[in-house]
Design a protein around this nucleic acid. Sequence first.
DNA 1: CCGGACCCTGAAAATACCTTTCAGAGGTGA
DNA 2: TCACCTCTGAAAGGTATTTTCAGGGTCCGG
Lengths: 303, 303
Amino acid sequence: MKESFGHSAPPAPAALAAKVRTLAPSMTRSMQRVAEAVAGDPAGCSALTVTGLAELTGTSEATVVRTARLLGYPGYRDLRLALAGLAAQQESGQSPAVTADIAVDDSLADVVAKLAYDEQQTLADTAAGLDTAQLAACVDALAGARRIDIYGIGASGLVAQDLAQKLLRIGLIAHAHADPHLAVTNAVQLRPRDVAIAITHSGTTGDVIEPLRTAFERGAITIAVTGRPDGAVSQYADHLLTTSTARESELRPAAMSSRTSQLLVVDCLFVGVAQRTYETAAPALSASYEALAHRHDPRSGRR
Amino acid sequence: MKESFGHSAPPAPAALAAKVRTLAPSMTRSMQRVAEAVAGDPAGCSALTVTGLAELTGTSEATVVRTARLLGYPGYRDLRLALAGLAAQQESGQSPAVTADIAVDDSLADVVAKLAYDEQQTLADTAAGLDTAQLAACVDALAGARRIDIYGIGASGLVAQDLAQKLLRIGLIAHAHADPHLAVTNAVQLRPRDVAIAITHSGTTGDVIEPLRTAFERGAITIAVTGRPDGAVSQYADHLLTTSTARESELRPAAMSSRTSQLLVVDCLFVGVAQRTYETAAPALSASYEALAHRHDPRSGRR
DNA sequence: CCGGACCCTGAAAATACCTTTCAGAGGTGA
DNA sequence: TCACCTCTGAAAGGTATTTTCAGGGTCCGG
């Protein structure tokens, strides 16, 4: 008889509310109460045991199990699993507020979610906007450079250091300059085929433009990593790598997303160069890894 | 003892794969097998009973339960529920799966796509795995600190500097120490209510643990930002902020994704503190912005 | 108005599943 | 080599779920 309802029904994935409505008329009163509770608060019900749900709905365990059967599951256990899935789904769906700006009174959880979302967005934008032809040219230049100078100030200075660290690790001679004067005096030493990289989000940081200009005039290959390809820095750059510019606000300084973007570009450069010079890069990488091993206490962390 | 690891960890909703990676190193062999199976096929495992999963992984029920506990759930039942939720989520999410590792002969476009995807993943994992209660405690501590010392070496050193730069911008007295000796000698000066932060991916970097330990013994509030919450650094940390651990490979050193993760945590700390101290932070932020304005050439960049 | 059949319902027994305990195996350091 | 410690699975112990069963209600026909 009523077996015909549940017949070929596979364990419903998400269309549970609909199923409840469809089947409700064929349910007895107490079963309807159970179905209602389940459809109304999947998350809450998924946390309950059979006994709990029975008490909540003022029915018995047997009724709960019968309801689960009617909805197409082998038993309550499986209904509960489906409920948990449903709860997770609609929870992941409900995060539209993430796009809003960070407010002073946002909860920390909101802050975390928004920051993560924004940085993800920045990454996607940067990847989409990156000119692989330019990137390839830069990788070529770096792979063949006798010496690499990198200029960055403030937040971009850290990115410059990061790149320098990475390149050093694969055996290239790279140096990050934070001091503008030293940067210029060093830039004078550059020769053709050497590479100079300027990192500046605004594209207008004089302290970074100057050394790049010097390098440019000395005939070195110059690269600018900037969020403003129309900025002053570009006129001395043989190659341009554009970083994306996300919106900023009082609580979210530009330094934050520009840094993310710059780091992705820098990582791409690094991996590109590592690929190109794999023969020498791979041993160099493992060597630096080995060298560091003894600086870590092997006893900590089981196994 | 080991209770302290899972301390305030709430039943993670979706950050399971990340949690597995984070905790895997501290697991025993058989537990790793279980964790692997769970992370590899959440949907499939959610359909299995303890006994089933034990058989599948060639272990015992006890081991399965132990693994579930380690992952932060009260028992297997709850892990299974979470698994069902995860399965439902990723079924609806339809992850595009650029999951392949970076190869030597990948095109640059592939490299860019893979790096961007991985870093996005890292961000999501980190955000999901971040303990907001711990974060709140850290924000509190920072907001009320007389002085803040930050320790980081190598790649983590740049993150330490980044945090110091940011905190300085909102009027806090923060200093990043890269020199282990100076770090220790400075740590001696710390007093209760001051804050010391150690940043280390491995959780075992002696040069960073030592100053934190000194600070801890001087009664300062200590914070560890680490990818290995079971590492040696944790024993001297009042608060733990866990960064996510992405898989690494020859062409993708651990430093890369750990840095992304650490930076997100650092940003969250910063924004949290800025919110808390908005009255003083906001003017400080705009002041530093103004002060920098004249360092940029206003003529460059059209418009 | 009464009696009988049918089905809904929950209590309790039966089972399946999950958790805990315990002792042996395997490895590690002295 | 031995003592010690940790990991591991078998089996006991406890919950949760499922099944069974009988009481009570309702509806229909007489």
